[in-house]
Design a protein around this nucleic acid. Sequence first.
DNA 1: ATCGGTTTGACAACGGTTCTCATTACGAAT
DNA 2: ATTCGTAATGAGAACCGTTGTCAAACCGAT
Lengths: 136, 136
Amino acid sequence: MMSTDVNKPAAAVRPTKQRMAVARILESFADFRSAQEIHAMLTAAGETVGLATVYRTLQLMAESGDLDVLRTEDGEAAYRRCSATHHHHLVCRSCGATVEIEGPAVERWAEAISAEHGYTEISHTLELFGTCASCR
Amino acid sequence: MMSTDVNKPAAAVRPTKQRMAVARILESFADFRSAQEIHAMLTAAGETVGLATVYRTLQLMAESGDLDVLRTEDGEAAYRRCSATHHHHLVCRSCGATVEIEGPAVERWAEAISAEHGYTEISHTLELFGTCASCR
DNA sequence: ATCGGTTTGACAACGGTTCTCATTACGAAT
DNA sequence: ATTCGTAATGAGAACCGTTGTCAAACCGAT
């Protein structure tokens, strides 16, 4: 094996103590958390990792595709460990519970409509927000 | 007539000089601009409207559905006058040119998939970013 | 152990947005 | 027109998430 290992954050990235701590804590939850929340969790867990380092690590991991990023409705970034495939999320507005969803049809639609208007190098953001069953 | 008039920003909102100035400037462009850009345009046009007022007016108008809002990829809010129907946007990453798109299929898909997971009161964000033909 | 490039952490700086609050404008009633 | 109660404004401070700075600590190959 050579990547996507819990104890080895990313490819050419040095597996430092703090990066491993971040990677590890990311395994402990399944929904989206902000950088600050993650930093707080680390601190609470007795790890001493600087806030700046958390931010840096998070964006490193996001860039190398190890992490999902989404912008909450008020513009903050939230992170979550990533399952390799491209997908979107259905997030509960009040408790944050997340369901990973796939929409091959949407992907195709996005590609098609973009091409139709002469746009290339398409990327898209798609998030669903709602109230989940137990928060009803 | 009674609403959606250029000179009467919103329903129970007082049509003040500055609100009208904001509404008017919004008619002068068709793509998305940030609150600060809009404020700068107003100032450049000789209108004296405070930045805070621009922010307040913009979010008022957005709430009452007179404006489209979108979050750029780096989390800032951008506004644009709104065509009444629900729709999404295909935005050029380099010049900001915007194409308004509709995706009834996507709407239906979003509803369906949310219901399927027991989520209610669904809202969604969907934006496409790409490079337009003339920026190629 | 040593050395050179990485990474870290504390804290300052930033940029967008929101808040505060005294002042002003609105518009309904007089 | 004048008055009055309320909503709106503006200037600036405050906020908050995020990014930058830079000296000190760390990693790992030698």
